[in-house]
């Protein structure tokens, strides 16, 4: 549920008045639209009694992505898992809107199953947890080896300023190439889905997106950092 403004310090009425003032200058007032965002997923889930039905992935693929999301962001003492945060739904929904992305998942998951069959005579999903993490460890090791070989910290893309330009591409030769590339896709999308969810926001402790009449920085935070910095003694 969208919160237009989280109120703190000033009253809701004042905010709405401020909004109305700004909006009428544009000649149109659409608070309703500004306040409510209907999500397709939520609407779909309602129809199926709270269960998300995959649109792009097969049942087996969706379950495999769910297992991966659980391994990538596992539940711990602070928060739940990638699955709890809706990562598989996020991945499936976007894949259902983009054939290129769907192919990345169809192909990547097929590669993963083929590789697991070669090693353990079973699919990734049906393999024992230790075999699953073993496989991911192999992919991560291959990724690190490539990064070391190229002697660069950032082989993936340019700095954020240039995010939208043709940046560095990830070319990883070798037998694990396709697996490394695919794992990077499922990892980045799972991580994005987790940390953009209310659960992830709470996990890292983002406390903003609020409104105040005055902005203040807590003295305790300042004292903490200065004490740990080279400026502890002035």
């Amino acid at each position: 549920m969208s919160k237009l403004v989280q109120l703190e310090g000033i009253g809701r009425r004042e905010i709405v008045r401020g909004l109305a003032l700004a909006l009428t200058s544009a000649g149109s007032l659409d608070l309703e639209a500004a306040q409510h965002v209907h999500t397709e997923t939520a609407a779909d889930k309602k129809k199926t009694g709270g269960v998300y039905k995959p649109k792009a992935l097969t049942d087996h693929e969706y379950k495999t992505v769910s297992r991966l999301a659980e391994l990538i962001v596992p539940a711990d003492e602070v928060s739940g898992s990638g699955v709890d945060a809706g990562a598989p739904e996020f991945i499936d929904l976007l894949a259902s809107q983009n054939a290129k992305l769907a192919d990345i998942y169809h192909g990547g998951l097929a590669w993963l199953d083929a590789e697991m069959r070669r090693r353990n005579k079973t699919t990734f999903l049906a393999a024992a947890p230790a075999a699953q993490t073993g496989m991911l460890d192999v992919l991560v090791a291959a990724e690190r080896e490539e990064r070391t070989r190229r002697g660069e910290e950032l082989v993936y893309q340019r700095s954020a300023d240039y995010r939208n330009f043709a940046g560095y591409t990830t070319k990883r030769p070798g037998e694990f190439g396709p697996g490394v590339v695919f794992f990077d896709w499922v990892r980045r999308m799972t991580v994005d889905a987790f940390y953009t969810s209310p659960m992830g926001v709470k996990d890292i402790g983002y406390v903003g997106n609020r409104s105040y009449s005055k902005y203040e920085v807590p003295q305790a935070a300042l004292d903490y950092a200065i004490k740990r910095s080279p400026f502890a003694n002035g």
Binding site: S2, K3, L4, V5, V37, T39, E40, T41, E89, F90, L93, L94, A95, Q97, N98, L101, M189, D192, A193, T196, S197, P198, V201, N209
Partner: peptide
């Protein structure tokens, strides 16, 4: 004042 989770695509835009 919108959150990424107000959108199914979380800000990745349609089709990512």
């Amino acid at each position: 004042h919108k959150w990424p989770h107000d959108y199914d695509h979380r800000g990745a835009e349609e089709g990512g």
